[in-house]
């Protein structure tokens, strides 16, 4: 008993100290007022409102899937940064770098965490979408945020797809070859797509193997060195950047649409 009192006083003394207060801005949240302030006064927590309806905190309502999708995005960013220390996106090094980073790097499960995390994120995003459908949470005023969500799902799939190429093994290049072969059939801008032959000046075809949308995606006529670099940049910079913007909008709109949905 005496010990507990001592601890508490240590805690509260810490909570009242200048250092703590300069960082956290409020004392240890004990009173109702302080607890609300702990959320409002913190840049990360103030994503939340200070108070939410009772059903909103139940696992059974949201299954936590939106939150876990975001959490996985953070995990993937962190493990991805660690992987970037070791990985060079060239045909010469990519494959051996992957072997090195599993075999030479201590506690080398970064690649596993990153890969399984990516698969898991596809799943959590799908489950999140299912729950949003099943609770009818896409109905007004949340139509727009559902749309943002659909784009987020597309972005998640594209992120996963661009990352699939980077190990530069058989699995990687053939999966990406199969996937990007679709692009040649794009109407008008793929060289084997309907309407592509209409885009011509006289006899000169504007859309051919060396100029169509697949060529732009791959940086060449087949999956090669340029594709690896392109996918690397897309995977590490471009797509995460877009994803972050859409997530910001998504989270902001949840608040603006009146917080988590619920029965009236």
């Amino acid at each position: 008993m005496a010990e507990k009192e001592k601890k508490e006083s240590l805690l509260s003394r810490l909570g009242e100290s200048q250092v703590w207060k300069s960082i956290i801005r409020s004392g240890v949240p004990r009173s109702r007022r302080q607890r609300m302030y702990a959320v409002l006064g913190n840049v990360f927590l103030h994503l939340h409102p200070a108070r939410v309806p009772k059903h909103a905190v139940k696992i059974g309502y949201t299954w936590c899937m939106g939150g876990l999708s975001f959490f996985l995005f953070v995990v993937l960013t962190i493990t991805g940064i660690l992987l970037m220390f070791y990985y060079r996106p060239t045909v010469e090094y990519a494959y051996t770098d992957i072997i090195d980073l599993t075999e030479q790097v201590p506690l080398g499960i970064m690649r596993e965490l990153h890969r399984w995390g990516a698969h898991a994120m596809v799943l959590t995003v799908w489950l999140h979408m299912l729950r949003v459908f099943m609770t009818g949470s896409y109905k007004p005023p949340r139509e727009f945020n559902w749309g943002v969500g659909v784009l987020l799902m597309t972005i998640t799939l594209f992120l996963s797809f661009t990352g699939y190429l980077l190990p530069w093994d058989q699995l990687a290049i053939w999966a990406v070859t199969v996937g990007t072969n679709m692009a040649r059939a794009h109407p008008f801008i793929g060289h084997e797509g309907p309407g592509a032959s209409l885009l011509a000046i006289g006899d000169i075809n504007l859309v051919h193997m060396g100029s169509d949308v697949r060529f732009a995606l791959l940086g060449g006529r087949f999956v090669g060195e340029a594709t690896l670099l392109r996918f690397y940049v897309l995977h590490c910079i471009a797509v995460p950047f877009v994803a972050m913007i859409f997530m910001a909008v998504h989270f902001w709109r949840i608040r603006k649409d009146g917080g988590i949905s619920g029965p009236l």
Partner: peptide
């Protein structure tokens, strides 16, 4: 309603 701190953050 319930407070986000601690009812939501701990979940």
């Amino acid at each position: 309603k319930v407070l986000v701190w601690p009812d939501l953050v701990y979940i």
